[in-house]
Amino acid sequence: MIYAALFYLIAGLTVFCALGVALSRNVVYSAFFLMGALLGAAGLYGFLLADFVAVVQILVYVGGILVLTLFAIMLTHQIAEVEVSNRSVGRLPAAILVIVTGVGMGLAIFRAPWHTAPSGEPPPTTYGIGEAFLGPYLLPFELASVVLLTALIGAIVLSRRELRD
């Protein structure tokens, strides 16, 4: 019972924070709501006994990406007063997009065969993940690293003035 209550608490928190990200007028508030959403997602991974993924979620997204986002926001002059909204897309196309995505996701949710995780002590997952990365999924793993490396080099090239001129 407490287990279920905890699950709904964390799930509700995640959804609430995700709504906060989307609906907040102030971009700094959006960023902090994003932290709540990411932490909630990590909690949900924990419920799925995916401890490694949960911790990496916090490490990479909260510790890395979110802090970098906040960093960029805070270095931008008077960003809190800026009216953030996308005027290039009207209400109607947006509504259509929302309905299509909503229906698609709803179908996926109700049709997918859900597995229930066994309760109890979580088995160590890191070993299996490591084996999978260096075994059958070596090529996709390395490709992802190459993509990230390309993005890194691209960022450096874009931001260095002496290379741009």
Partner: peptide, 12 residues
């Protein structure tokens, strides 16, 4: 099982 990583993560 991920203790050390957990500490590095939550201090964020």
């Amino acid at each position: 099982n991920v203790g050390v990583l957990y500490i590095t993560a939550v201090t964020a």
